[in-house]
Design a protein around this nucleic acid. Structure first.
Lengths: 230, 230
DNA sequence: GATACACATTTTATTGAATGAAACAAGGCT
DNA sequence: AGCCTTGTTTCATTCAATAAAATGTGTATC
Protein backbone atom coordinates (compact mmCIF):
# COMPACT_ATOMS: atom_id res chain seq x y z
CA UNK A 1 0.00 0.00 0.00
CA UNK A 2 2.76 2.40 1.05
CA UNK A 3 1.28 5.10 -1.21
CA UNK A 4 -0.02 8.32 0.37
CA UNK A 5 -0.97 8.10 4.01
CA UNK A 6 -4.00 10.32 4.52
CA UNK A 7 -3.63 13.43 6.61
CA UNK A 8 -5.94 13.76 9.54
CA UNK A 9 -5.65 11.71 12.69
CA UNK A 10 -9.04 10.13 12.35
CA UNK A 11 -8.52 9.13 8.73
CA UNK A 12 -5.21 7.61 9.68
CA UNK A 13 -6.68 5.64 12.55
CA UNK A 14 -9.49 4.32 10.39
CA UNK A 15 -6.96 3.43 7.74
CA UNK A 16 -5.23 1.27 10.33
CA UNK A 17 -8.50 -0.50 11.11
CA UNK A 18 -9.13 -1.04 7.42
CA UNK A 19 -5.93 -3.04 7.13
CA UNK A 20 -7.56 -6.01 8.80
CA UNK A 21 -9.23 -8.60 6.66
CA UNK A 22 -10.33 -12.18 6.98
CA UNK A 23 -6.90 -13.11 5.67
CA UNK A 24 -5.06 -10.66 7.94
CA UNK A 25 -6.71 -11.01 11.30
CA UNK A 26 -3.68 -10.02 13.34
CA UNK A 27 -1.21 -7.25 12.69
CA UNK A 28 1.82 -5.99 14.54
CA UNK A 29 3.06 -2.45 14.69
CA UNK A 30 5.68 -2.98 12.02
CA UNK A 31 3.03 -4.23 9.60
CA UNK A 32 0.66 -1.38 10.38
CA UNK A 33 3.47 1.02 9.69
CA UNK A 34 4.55 -0.67 6.48
CA UNK A 35 1.05 -1.17 5.08
CA UNK A 36 -0.23 2.27 5.95
CA UNK A 37 2.90 4.27 5.25
CA UNK A 38 2.63 5.87 8.67
CA UNK A 39 5.56 6.37 10.98
CA UNK A 40 5.98 3.70 13.64
CA UNK A 41 5.59 6.23 16.41
CA UNK A 42 2.43 7.68 14.89
CA UNK A 43 0.86 4.29 14.38
CA UNK A 44 1.83 3.21 17.87
CA UNK A 45 0.05 6.15 19.44
CA UNK A 46 -3.09 5.69 17.37
CA UNK A 47 -3.20 1.99 18.16
CA UNK A 48 -2.91 2.72 21.85
CA UNK A 49 -6.02 4.90 21.71
CA UNK A 50 -7.94 2.31 19.72
CA UNK A 51 -7.02 -0.33 22.27
CA UNK A 52 -8.10 1.87 25.15
CA UNK A 53 -11.58 2.12 23.67
CA UNK A 54 -11.80 -1.59 22.92
CA UNK A 55 -11.77 -1.29 19.14
CA UNK A 56 -8.52 -3.21 19.12
CA UNK A 57 -7.21 -5.89 21.43
CA UNK A 58 -3.60 -6.47 22.17
CA UNK A 59 -2.66 -10.13 21.81
CA UNK A 60 -0.19 -11.70 24.17
CA UNK A 61 2.46 -11.73 21.44
CA UNK A 62 2.14 -7.98 21.02
CA UNK A 63 0.09 -8.11 17.84
CA UNK A 64 -3.27 -6.39 17.47
CA UNK A 65 -6.66 -7.66 16.39
CA UNK A 66 -10.16 -6.16 16.35
CA UNK A 67 -11.67 -5.76 19.82
CA UNK A 68 -15.07 -6.33 21.41
CA UNK A 69 -16.33 -2.79 20.91
CA UNK A 70 -16.83 -3.69 17.28
CA UNK A 71 -19.32 -6.31 18.39
CA UNK A 72 -21.19 -3.65 20.27
CA UNK A 73 -21.54 -1.33 17.31
CA UNK A 74 -22.29 -4.20 14.95
CA UNK A 75 -25.09 -5.20 17.22
CA UNK A 76 -26.58 -1.72 17.14
CA UNK A 77 -26.06 -1.55 13.40
CA UNK A 78 -27.93 -4.77 12.94
CA UNK A 79 -30.76 -3.48 15.08
CA UNK A 80 -31.01 -0.21 13.14
CA UNK A 81 -30.63 -1.60 9.69
CA UNK A 82 -34.07 -2.56 8.63
CA UNK A 83 -32.48 -3.15 5.26
CA UNK A 84 -30.93 -6.33 6.61
CA UNK A 85 -34.11 -7.70 8.06
CA UNK A 86 -36.13 -6.74 5.01
CA UNK A 87 -33.69 -8.23 2.52
CA UNK A 88 -33.39 -11.59 4.24
CA UNK A 89 -36.76 -12.85 3.09
CA UNK A 90 -36.26 -12.01 -0.59
CA UNK A 91 -32.76 -13.50 -0.51
CA UNK A 92 -33.88 -16.87 0.71
CA UNK A 93 -36.79 -16.98 -1.74
CA UNK A 94 -34.58 -15.98 -4.65
CA UNK A 95 -31.93 -18.56 -3.83
CA UNK A 96 -34.70 -21.11 -3.56
CA UNK A 97 -36.13 -20.24 -6.96
CA UNK A 98 -32.88 -19.97 -8.90
CA UNK A 99 -31.01 -22.64 -6.92
CA UNK A 100 -27.87 -20.56 -6.62
CA UNK A 101 -26.04 -18.63 -3.93
CA UNK A 102 -27.65 -15.25 -3.28
CA UNK A 103 -26.16 -12.44 -1.22
CA UNK A 104 -26.49 -8.74 -0.56
CA UNK A 105 -23.54 -6.33 -0.41
CA UNK A 106 -23.12 -2.71 0.52
CA UNK A 107 -20.20 -0.38 0.21
CA UNK A 108 -18.40 0.42 3.43
CA UNK A 109 -15.46 2.67 2.83
CA UNK A 110 -13.36 1.14 0.09
CA UNK A 111 -14.71 -2.32 0.66
CA UNK A 112 -17.82 -4.26 -0.05
CA UNK A 113 -19.39 -5.91 2.95
CA UNK A 114 -21.85 -8.78 2.92
CA UNK A 115 -24.91 -7.87 4.95
CA UNK A 116 -26.89 -11.01 4.28
CA UNK A 117 -26.71 -14.24 2.31
CA UNK A 118 -28.85 -17.28 1.84
CA UNK A 119 -28.30 -20.31 4.00
CA UNK A 120 -29.18 -22.85 1.33
CA UNK A 121 -26.14 -23.05 -0.91
CA UNK A 122 -23.07 -23.22 1.22
CA UNK A 123 -20.58 -24.11 -1.47
CA UNK A 124 -17.17 -24.40 0.12
CA UNK A 125 -15.61 -23.25 -3.12
CA UNK A 126 -17.44 -19.94 -2.94
CA UNK A 127 -17.47 -19.00 0.67
CA UNK A 128 -19.07 -15.76 1.78
CA UNK A 129 -20.12 -14.91 5.24
CA UNK A 130 -22.17 -12.15 6.80
CA UNK A 131 -19.81 -9.34 7.72
CA UNK A 132 -17.17 -10.59 5.34
CA UNK A 133 -15.69 -7.96 3.09
CA UNK A 134 -13.08 -7.48 0.43
CA UNK A 135 -11.58 -4.47 -1.26
CA UNK A 136 -13.60 -2.93 -4.07
CA UNK A 137 -10.37 -2.87 -6.06
CA UNK A 138 -10.45 -6.65 -6.29
CA UNK A 139 -13.36 -6.44 -8.64
CA UNK A 140 -16.21 -8.91 -8.98
CA UNK A 141 -19.82 -8.25 -9.86
CA UNK A 142 -20.80 -6.65 -6.55
CA UNK A 143 -17.75 -4.38 -6.50
CA UNK A 144 -18.30 -3.18 -10.06
CA UNK A 145 -21.91 -2.41 -9.36
CA UNK A 146 -21.20 -0.63 -6.09
CA UNK A 147 -18.57 1.50 -7.76
CA UNK A 148 -20.91 2.38 -10.59
CA UNK A 149 -23.73 3.46 -8.31
CA UNK A 150 -21.45 5.46 -6.09
CA UNK A 151 -20.70 7.75 -9.00
CA UNK A 152 -17.38 6.39 -10.26
CA UNK A 153 -16.45 8.02 -13.55
CA UNK A 154 -15.82 5.91 -16.65
CA UNK A 155 -17.55 4.39 -19.62
CA UNK A 156 -17.88 0.95 -18.09
CA UNK A 157 -19.54 2.43 -15.01
CA UNK A 158 -21.86 4.56 -17.14
CA UNK A 159 -23.00 1.38 -18.88
CA UNK A 160 -23.52 -0.43 -15.60
CA UNK A 161 -25.52 2.50 -14.24
CA UNK A 162 -27.66 2.53 -17.36
CA UNK A 163 -28.33 -1.20 -17.25
CA UNK A 164 -28.77 -1.53 -13.49
CA UNK A 165 -26.88 -4.80 -13.36
CA UNK A 166 -23.42 -6.20 -14.00
CA UNK A 167 -22.36 -9.66 -15.07
CA UNK A 168 -18.95 -10.98 -14.13
CA UNK A 169 -17.39 -14.18 -15.37
CA UNK A 170 -14.29 -15.45 -13.62
CA UNK A 171 -13.39 -12.02 -12.42
CA UNK A 172 -12.39 -12.91 -8.90
CA UNK A 173 -12.54 -16.67 -9.21
CA UNK A 174 -12.15 -18.23 -12.62
CA UNK A 175 -14.73 -20.92 -12.03
CA UNK A 176 -17.60 -18.68 -11.05
CA UNK A 177 -20.02 -16.34 -12.72
CA UNK A 178 -22.23 -13.75 -11.05
CA UNK A 179 -24.86 -11.18 -11.74
CA UNK A 180 -25.10 -8.17 -9.46
CA UNK A 181 -28.28 -6.11 -9.46
CA UNK A 182 -28.66 -2.62 -8.03
CA UNK A 183 -31.06 -2.32 -5.11
CA UNK A 184 -32.92 0.86 -4.25
CA UNK A 185 -35.07 1.95 -1.39
CA UNK A 186 -38.65 2.78 -2.34
CA UNK A 187 -37.71 6.48 -2.30
CA UNK A 188 -34.99 5.88 -4.87
CA UNK A 189 -31.99 5.84 -2.52
CA UNK A 190 -29.30 3.41 -3.64
CA UNK A 191 -28.70 0.67 -1.09
CA UNK A 192 -26.35 -1.94 -2.47
CA UNK A 193 -25.91 -4.92 -4.72
CA UNK A 194 -27.82 -8.17 -4.71
CA UNK A 195 -25.79 -10.94 -6.31
CA UNK A 196 -26.45 -14.42 -7.57
CA UNK A 197 -23.36 -16.57 -7.99
CA UNK A 198 -22.77 -20.04 -9.32
CA UNK A 199 -20.42 -22.20 -11.31
CA UNK A 200 -19.55 -20.58 -14.62
CA UNK A 201 -20.09 -23.86 -16.43
CA UNK A 202 -23.73 -23.97 -15.30
CA UNK A 203 -24.53 -20.33 -15.86
CA UNK A 204 -24.44 -18.83 -19.33
CA UNK A 205 -25.14 -15.13 -19.56
CA UNK A 206 -28.71 -15.82 -20.63
CA UNK A 207 -29.23 -17.86 -17.49
CA UNK A 208 -27.98 -15.01 -15.36
CA UNK A 209 -30.21 -12.57 -17.22
CA UNK A 210 -33.20 -14.85 -16.71
CA UNK A 211 -32.77 -14.29 -12.97
CA UNK A 212 -33.50 -10.59 -13.32
CA UNK A 213 -37.31 -10.83 -13.25
CA UNK A 214 -37.13 -13.22 -10.29
CA UNK A 215 -35.01 -10.77 -8.37
CA UNK A 216 -37.22 -7.85 -9.27
CA UNK A 217 -40.34 -9.69 -8.23
CA UNK A 218 -39.04 -10.94 -4.88
CA UNK A 219 -37.31 -7.78 -3.71
CA UNK A 220 -40.36 -5.84 -4.87
CA UNK A 221 -42.46 -7.76 -2.36
CA UNK A 222 -40.27 -6.29 0.39
CA UNK A 223 -40.63 -2.79 -1.00
CA UNK A 224 -37.29 -2.53 -2.77
CA UNK A 225 -36.68 -1.33 -6.30
CA UNK A 226 -34.15 -2.48 -8.88
CA UNK A 227 -33.98 0.91 -10.48
CA UNK A 228 -34.04 4.43 -9.07
CA UNK A 229 -37.54 5.85 -8.70
CA UNK A 230 -38.78 7.59 -11.84
CA UNK B 1 -22.40 13.77 29.94
CA UNK B 2 -21.28 17.31 29.09
CA UNK B 3 -18.24 16.99 31.37
CA UNK B 4 -14.76 17.25 29.88
CA UNK B 5 -14.49 16.38 26.22
CA UNK B 6 -11.23 14.51 25.70
CA UNK B 7 -8.48 16.18 23.75
CA UNK B 8 -7.22 14.34 20.73
CA UNK B 9 -9.14 13.87 17.56
CA UNK B 10 -9.25 10.13 17.78
CA UNK B 11 -10.44 10.08 21.36
CA UNK B 12 -13.14 12.54 20.46
CA UNK B 13 -14.30 10.51 17.48
CA UNK B 14 -14.43 7.33 19.52
CA UNK B 15 -16.31 9.20 22.20
CA UNK B 16 -18.92 10.02 19.58
CA UNK B 17 -19.22 6.35 18.67
CA UNK B 18 -19.53 5.42 22.32
CA UNK B 19 -22.66 7.53 22.62
CA UNK B 20 -24.70 4.92 20.81
CA UNK B 21 -26.44 2.26 22.79
CA UNK B 22 -29.29 -0.15 22.33
CA UNK B 23 -31.53 2.57 23.71
CA UNK B 24 -29.95 5.31 21.58
CA UNK B 25 -29.55 3.78 18.17
CA UNK B 26 -29.83 7.02 16.22
CA UNK B 27 -28.29 10.37 17.05
CA UNK B 28 -28.31 13.70 15.33
CA UNK B 29 -25.57 16.29 15.33
CA UNK B 30 -27.17 18.34 18.05
CA UNK B 31 -27.28 15.34 20.35
CA UNK B 32 -23.71 14.35 19.60
CA UNK B 33 -22.65 17.86 20.43
CA UNK B 34 -24.68 18.05 23.62
CA UNK B 35 -23.77 14.60 24.92
CA UNK B 36 -20.08 14.83 24.12
CA UNK B 37 -19.53 18.46 24.97
CA UNK B 38 -17.88 18.98 21.59
CA UNK B 39 -18.56 21.98 19.38
CA UNK B 40 -21.11 21.44 16.62
CA UNK B 41 -18.53 22.16 13.98
CA UNK B 42 -16.01 19.76 15.46
CA UNK B 43 -18.51 16.96 15.81
CA UNK B 44 -19.80 17.55 12.30
CA UNK B 45 -16.35 17.16 10.81
CA UNK B 46 -15.58 14.01 12.77
CA UNK B 47 -18.91 12.47 11.83
CA UNK B 48 -18.25 13.16 8.17
CA UNK B 49 -15.03 11.17 8.31
CA UNK B 50 -16.68 8.30 10.16
CA UNK B 51 -19.43 8.18 7.55
CA UNK B 52 -16.90 8.17 4.72
CA UNK B 53 -15.32 5.02 6.13
CA UNK B 54 -18.63 3.30 6.74
CA UNK B 55 -18.46 3.32 10.54
CA UNK B 56 -21.52 5.53 10.56
CA UNK B 57 -24.44 5.74 8.19
CA UNK B 58 -26.42 8.85 7.54
CA UNK B 59 -30.15 8.23 7.79
CA UNK B 60 -32.54 9.92 5.45
CA UNK B 61 -33.69 12.23 8.25
CA UNK B 62 -30.14 13.46 8.77
CA UNK B 63 -29.49 11.40 11.89
CA UNK B 64 -26.58 9.01 12.24
CA UNK B 65 -26.40 5.36 13.19
CA UNK B 66 -23.62 2.75 13.19
CA UNK B 67 -22.57 1.65 9.71
CA UNK B 68 -21.71 -1.64 8.01
CA UNK B 69 -17.98 -1.40 8.61
CA UNK B 70 -18.68 -2.36 12.19
CA UNK B 71 -20.08 -5.63 10.93
CA UNK B 72 -16.84 -6.24 9.10
CA UNK B 73 -14.63 -5.73 12.13
CA UNK B 74 -17.01 -7.62 14.39
CA UNK B 75 -16.78 -10.54 12.01
CA UNK B 76 -12.98 -10.50 12.19
CA UNK B 77 -13.13 -10.07 15.94
CA UNK B 78 -15.34 -13.09 16.25
CA UNK B 79 -12.97 -15.11 14.09
CA UNK B 80 -9.91 -14.09 16.12
CA UNK B 81 -11.43 -14.41 19.52
CA UNK B 82 -10.91 -18.01 20.44
CA UNK B 83 -12.18 -16.93 23.83
CA UNK B 84 -15.67 -16.73 22.39
CA UNK B 85 -15.63 -20.13 20.80
CA UNK B 86 -14.00 -21.72 23.82
CA UNK B 87 -16.39 -20.19 26.34
CA UNK B 88 -19.55 -21.18 24.50
CA UNK B 89 -19.38 -24.83 25.51
CA UNK B 90 -18.89 -24.18 29.22
CA UNK B 91 -21.65 -21.56 29.18
CA UNK B 92 -24.29 -23.87 27.81
CA UNK B 93 -23.27 -26.69 30.16
CA UNK B 94 -23.29 -24.38 33.18
CA UNK B 95 -26.70 -22.94 32.34
CA UNK B 96 -27.94 -26.47 31.91
CA UNK B 97 -26.63 -27.59 35.29
CA UNK B 98 -27.71 -24.58 37.34
CA UNK B 99 -30.87 -23.86 35.34
CA UNK B 100 -30.21 -20.11 35.20
CA UNK B 101 -29.12 -17.57 32.63
CA UNK B 102 -25.36 -17.68 32.04
CA UNK B 103 -23.33 -15.11 30.12
CA UNK B 104 -19.79 -13.89 29.57
CA UNK B 105 -18.77 -10.23 29.60
CA UNK B 106 -15.60 -8.37 28.81
CA UNK B 107 -14.63 -4.79 29.30
CA UNK B 108 -14.56 -2.68 26.16
CA UNK B 109 -13.67 0.89 26.94
CA UNK B 110 -15.96 2.10 29.68
CA UNK B 111 -18.59 -0.49 28.96
CA UNK B 112 -19.13 -4.15 29.51
CA UNK B 113 -19.99 -6.12 26.40
CA UNK B 114 -21.64 -9.50 26.24
CA UNK B 115 -19.54 -11.88 24.15
CA UNK B 116 -21.64 -14.97 24.67
CA UNK B 117 -24.69 -16.18 26.53
CA UNK B 118 -26.64 -19.37 26.82
CA UNK B 119 -29.60 -20.00 24.58
CA UNK B 120 -31.64 -21.90 27.12
CA UNK B 121 -33.05 -19.29 29.46
CA UNK B 122 -34.39 -16.42 27.44
CA UNK B 123 -36.26 -14.64 30.16
CA UNK B 124 -37.85 -11.54 28.69
CA UNK B 125 -37.50 -9.81 32.03
CA UNK B 126 -33.71 -10.15 31.89
CA UNK B 127 -32.77 -9.67 28.29
CA UNK B 128 -29.15 -9.80 27.25
CA UNK B 129 -27.88 -10.28 23.78
CA UNK B 130 -24.51 -10.99 22.25
CA UNK B 131 -22.87 -7.66 21.51
CA UNK B 132 -25.09 -5.84 23.94
CA UNK B 133 -23.31 -3.52 26.30
CA UNK B 134 -23.97 -1.04 29.05
CA UNK B 135 -21.82 1.44 30.90
CA UNK B 136 -19.67 0.10 33.70
CA UNK B 137 -20.93 2.99 35.78
CA UNK B 138 -24.38 1.40 35.87
CA UNK B 139 -23.05 -1.28 38.16
CA UNK B 140 -24.20 -4.89 38.32
CA UNK B 141 -22.19 -7.98 39.10
CA UNK B 142 -20.26 -8.11 35.82
CA UNK B 143 -19.38 -4.41 35.94
CA UNK B 144 -18.14 -4.59 39.53
CA UNK B 145 -15.98 -7.56 38.73
CA UNK B 146 -14.57 -6.06 35.55
CA UNK B 147 -13.70 -2.87 37.38
CA UNK B 148 -12.01 -4.81 40.17
CA UNK B 149 -9.85 -6.86 37.84
CA UNK B 150 -8.88 -3.87 35.78
CA UNK B 151 -7.15 -2.42 38.79
CA UNK B 152 -9.73 0.03 40.10
CA UNK B 153 -8.69 1.38 43.49
CA UNK B 154 -10.94 1.01 46.52
CA UNK B 155 -11.71 -1.31 49.36
CA UNK B 156 -14.70 -2.91 47.70
CA UNK B 157 -12.61 -3.71 44.65
CA UNK B 158 -9.79 -5.10 46.76
CA UNK B 159 -12.27 -7.46 48.36
CA UNK B 160 -13.64 -8.53 45.00
CA UNK B 161 -10.13 -9.13 43.68
CA UNK B 162 -9.32 -11.22 46.74
CA UNK B 163 -12.47 -13.31 46.46
CA UNK B 164 -12.51 -13.68 42.68
CA UNK B 165 -16.27 -13.25 42.50
CA UNK B 166 -18.95 -10.65 43.20
CA UNK B 167 -22.57 -11.11 44.17
CA UNK B 168 -25.10 -8.45 43.30
CA UNK B 169 -28.68 -8.35 44.47
CA UNK B 170 -31.05 -5.95 42.81
CA UNK B 171 -28.24 -3.69 41.75
CA UNK B 172 -29.37 -3.00 38.21
CA UNK B 173 -32.78 -4.61 38.38
CA UNK B 174 -34.41 -5.02 41.74
CA UNK B 175 -35.86 -8.43 40.97
CA UNK B 176 -32.63 -10.14 39.99
CA UNK B 177 -29.56 -11.51 41.68
CA UNK B 178 -26.28 -12.44 40.02
CA UNK B 179 -22.89 -13.86 40.72
CA UNK B 180 -20.00 -12.79 38.54
CA UNK B 181 -16.83 -14.87 38.52
CA UNK B 182 -13.46 -13.77 37.19
CA UNK B 183 -12.15 -15.74 34.21
CA UNK B 184 -8.48 -16.13 33.41
CA UNK B 185 -6.57 -17.57 30.53
CA UNK B 186 -4.38 -20.54 31.40
CA UNK B 187 -1.39 -18.20 31.51
CA UNK B 188 -3.06 -16.05 34.16
CA UNK B 189 -4.27 -13.25 31.89
CA UNK B 190 -7.59 -11.77 33.01
CA UNK B 191 -10.28 -12.22 30.39
CA UNK B 192 -13.64 -11.16 31.74
CA UNK B 193 -16.60 -12.04 33.89
CA UNK B 194 -18.83 -15.07 33.72
CA UNK B 195 -22.20 -14.38 35.27
CA UNK B 196 -25.15 -16.43 36.39
CA UNK B 197 -28.36 -14.47 36.83
CA UNK B 198 -31.81 -15.35 38.04
CA UNK B 199 -34.76 -14.14 40.05
CA UNK B 200 -33.68 -12.83 43.44
CA UNK B 201 -36.52 -14.71 45.09
CA UNK B 202 -35.16 -18.03 43.84
CA UNK B 203 -31.50 -17.35 44.51
CA UNK B 204 -30.23 -16.84 48.03
CA UNK B 205 -26.56 -16.02 48.39
CA UNK B 206 -25.79 -19.62 49.32
CA UNK B 207 -27.41 -20.76 46.07
CA UNK B 208 -25.23 -18.40 44.10
CA UNK B 209 -22.14 -19.56 45.98
CA UNK B 210 -23.02 -23.17 45.29
CA UNK B 211 -22.61 -22.40 41.59
CA UNK B 212 -18.93 -21.62 42.04
CA UNK B 213 -17.64 -25.21 41.87
CA UNK B 214 -19.85 -25.88 38.84
CA UNK B 215 -18.40 -22.87 37.07
CA UNK B 216 -14.86 -23.77 38.00
CA UNK B 217 -15.29 -27.32 36.79
CA UNK B 218 -16.88 -26.49 33.46
CA UNK B 219 -14.64 -23.60 32.45
CA UNK B 220 -11.67 -25.66 33.58
CA UNK B 221 -12.55 -28.25 30.93
CA UNK B 222 -12.02 -25.54 28.32
CA UNK B 223 -8.69 -24.55 29.82
CA UNK B 224 -9.82 -21.44 31.69
CA UNK B 225 -9.03 -20.56 35.29
CA UNK B 226 -11.15 -18.80 37.88
CA UNK B 227 -8.14 -17.34 39.63
CA UNK B 228 -4.86 -15.95 38.32
CA UNK B 229 -2.14 -18.57 37.88
CA UNK B 230 -0.13 -19.15 41.06
C1' DG C 1 26.25 -15.67 29.24
C1' DA C 2 27.26 -11.98 26.44
C1' DT C 3 26.26 -9.72 21.95
C1' DA C 4 23.56 -8.49 18.37
C1' DC C 5 19.19 -7.98 16.43
C1' DA C 6 14.29 -6.80 15.85
C1' DC C 7 10.59 -4.58 17.32
C1' DA C 8 8.17 -1.26 20.33
C1' DT C 9 7.97 2.99 22.99
C1' DT C 10 9.24 7.55 24.57
C1' DT C 11 11.29 11.93 23.93
C1' DT C 12 11.55 16.56 21.88
C1' DA C 13 11.67 20.52 18.86
C1' DT C 14 8.91 21.86 15.00
C1' DT C 15 5.01 22.39 12.12
C1' DG C 16 0.57 22.11 10.47
C1' DA C 17 -3.79 20.35 11.27
C1' DA C 18 -7.65 20.82 14.52
C1' DT C 19 -10.34 24.25 16.70
C1' DG C 20 -14.61 27.11 17.74
C1' DA C 21 -16.97 31.55 17.20
C1' DA C 22 -19.53 33.53 13.95
C1' DA C 23 -21.44 33.81 9.56
C1' DC C 24 -24.06 31.28 6.28
C1' DA C 25 -27.37 27.89 4.46
C1' DA C 26 -31.39 24.83 4.50
C1' DG C 27 -35.57 23.20 6.05
C1' DG C 28 -39.88 23.15 9.06
C1' DC C 29 -43.43 25.32 11.35
C1' DT C 30 -46.87 28.98 12.68
C1' DA D 1 -43.65 35.40 4.38
C1' DG D 2 -40.94 35.26 8.61
C1' DC D 3 -39.23 32.84 12.52
C1' DC D 4 -36.89 29.06 14.60
C1' DT D 5 -34.20 24.93 14.64
C1' DT D 6 -30.45 22.30 12.84
C1' DG D 7 -26.43 21.58 10.02
C1' DT D 8 -22.28 23.38 7.37
C1' DT D 9 -18.49 26.46 6.05
C1' DT D 10 -15.21 30.00 6.88
C1' DC D 11 -11.00 31.75 8.90
C1' DA D 12 -7.56 33.44 12.15
C1' DT D 13 -5.41 31.32 16.23
C1' DT D 14 -3.28 27.87 18.84
C1' DC D 15 -2.45 23.54 20.61
C1' DA D 16 -1.95 18.91 19.59
C1' DA D 17 0.07 15.76 16.13
C1' DT D 18 4.34 14.74 14.02
C1' DA D 19 8.73 12.15 12.79
C1' DA D 20 13.67 11.41 13.71
C1' DA D 21 16.44 9.75 16.98
C1' DA D 22 17.21 7.82 21.40
C1' DT D 23 15.86 4.58 24.63
C1' DG D 24 13.74 0.41 26.18
C1' DT D 25 12.66 -4.63 25.98
C1' DG D 26 12.68 -8.89 24.67
C1' DT D 27 14.46 -12.75 21.65
C1' DA D 28 17.71 -15.21 18.84
C1' DT D 29 22.66 -16.32 17.99
C1' DC D 30 27.12 -17.61 18.91
Amino acid sequence: MTSTPPSGVLDRALLLLSLFSMERKRLQLKEFSALSGLDKATASRLLKVLVSWGYLSRNSDGSYSPGPSNLRLASIFRATSNTITRIEGPISRISERVAQTTAFFVRSGEERTCLARDHAYQDFRYFIETGGSVSLAEGGAAAQLLLAFNGTEGEIYDQTRARGYYISRGERNRHFASIAVAMFESDGEFLGALTITGMGADLANENLLSFLPVIKEEVGKAGFLTQPAL
